[in-house]
Computed example of a mutant assay.
Amino acid sequence: MDETPSNVVAVLARIPVESIVAALPLYERLAETSDVHVFTFGPVRLAWVGPFLLLEGADEAARSRAATIMVRDLDVVVDAVLDAGGDLLDGPMPGPNGRRLVARHGDGNVVEYVEQVAPTRS
C-alpha cells in the first residue's frame, strides 16, 4: 500500500450566510469546536470553523464554488486540472490563508483550492 499522504488535506463546505455572528453558534456546535478563524478576502468576510467556511457578503461568483479544498501542494492541482481539460479562473495567487486558485474542472464544477499553511486563529 502507498504510504504517501494525499495532497488533499481537507474539504470545506462553503456556506453563504447573512451574518457570521448570527450563524456561528450553530456551526460551532455542529463542528464541536469554538476554534474559529475569522478573516476577510476582498469584500467577503469569512469564518473557518471545523469543516465549514462561512461566507458573509459573498457575490454570485463566490457562491458558485462547489467547495474549498485545502491541499499540500497547489502546483500538483494546477497540473491535474489542466491535464484533465479544466481551466484556471483565478490564480494561483497569494491569499489570506496561503496560495490559492479557483479552477473550473472539465465537468464544469468550480472549486477553490488553498495551499495549506498553519492558520492564525482569532
Rank of each mutant, 00 (worst) to 15 (best):
M1Q: 07
D2N: 12
E3F: 14
S6F: 04
V9W: 02
V9R: 06
A10D: 10
A10R: 15
A10L: 10
A10I: 13
V11A: 10
L12K: 15
A13E: 15
R14P: 14
I15T: 00
P16L: 03
V17L: 01
V17Q: 05
E18V: 12
S19D: 08
I20E: 03
A23C: 11
A23D: 04
A23Y: 07
L24F: 11
P25S: 00
Y27K: 10
R29A: 09
A31I: 08
E32D: 11
S34K: 15
D35V: 13
V38R: 08
V38K: 02
F39K: 05
G42S: 07
P43D: 10
P43Y: 01
V44I: 15
R45E: 10
L46T: 15
A47T: 04
A47I: 02
W48G: 00
W48N: 13
V49S: 02
F52Y: 14
F52K: 06
F52R: 08
L54H: 05
D59K: 02
D59P: 02
E60T: 14
E60A: 09
A61I: 08
A61W: 09
A62K: 10
A62L: 07
A62Y: 08
S64R: 14
A67N: 11
T68A: 06
I69G: 04
M70H: 13
V71A: 05
R72T: 09
D73I: 11
D73F: 08
D73K: 11
L74F: 06
L74G: 11
L74Q: 04
D75G: 08
V76N: 04
V76E: 11
V78D: 03
D79N: 13
A80V: 14
V81T: 00
L82S: 12
A84I: 05
A84Y: 12
G85P: 15
G86N: 07
L89Q: 12
D90R: 15
G91C: 04
M93W: 06
M93V: 04
G95W: 01
N97W: 14
R99K: 11
R100W: 03
R100I: 12
A103R: 04
R104N: 06
R104W: 03
R104K: 15
H105Q: 14
G106N: 07
N109F: 09
V110T: 13
V110E: 08
V111H: 13
V111A: 14
E115V: 13
V117C: 03
V117G: 00
V117H: 00
A118I: 01
P119G: 03
T120Y: 00
T120Q: 14
